Simulated assay, not measured.
Amino acid sequence: MFSFFLKRLLLLIPVFLAVSMVIFMIVHLVPGDPIDNLVQINSTPEQKAALAAKYGLDKPLYQQYAIWLGKALSGDLGDAIILRRPVADLIALNLPHSLALGTLALAFSTLVGIAAGALAAVYKDSLVDRTTMTMILLGSTVPGFWLGLLLIMLFAVQLGWFPVSGARSWDALVLPVLTIGLGGVALVARVTRVAMMETARKDFVMMLHAKGVPSWQIELRHVLRHALLPVVTILSLRIGWILGGAVTVEFVFARPGLGSLLITSLNQRDYPVVQGSLLMLAIAVMLGTLLGDIVQAAMDPRVRERIK
Rank of each mutant, 00 (worst) to 15 (best):
G102T: 01
A105H: 01
V112D: 01
D76L: 12
T103W: 01
I136C: 06
I67T: 15
M135C: 15
W146Y: 07
Q64K: 01
Y123V: 14
A107G: 14
I91V: 12
L154K: 07
D79L: 05
A116I: 12
H97I: 02
Y65L: 15
A66L: 10
A66V: 04
G78K: 02
L150S: 10
G75H: 09
T110Y: 01
Y65P: 15
T103R: 01
L73M: 13
G70Y: 04
V128K: 06
S140D: 12
L150V: 09
Q64R: 02
T103F: 03
G113P: 14
A72E: 05
A66M: 10
K124Y: 11
L77A: 13
L95F: 03
G144R: 07
M153C: 12
L69I: 14
A107P: 09
D129K: 00
L99G: 07
S74V: 06
S126F: 01
I67H: 12
M135H: 07
L69D: 11
L106D: 09
A80Y: 08
D129W: 02
G102V: 00
K71P: 13
L104D: 02
R130V: 10
M133V: 08
G144Q: 13
Y65T: 14
A115K: 12
L111A: 14
G117P: 15
A92P: 09
D125A: 05
A105W: 05
A72G: 07
K71I: 07
T134V: 13
S109A: 10
G148F: 00
K71Q: 13
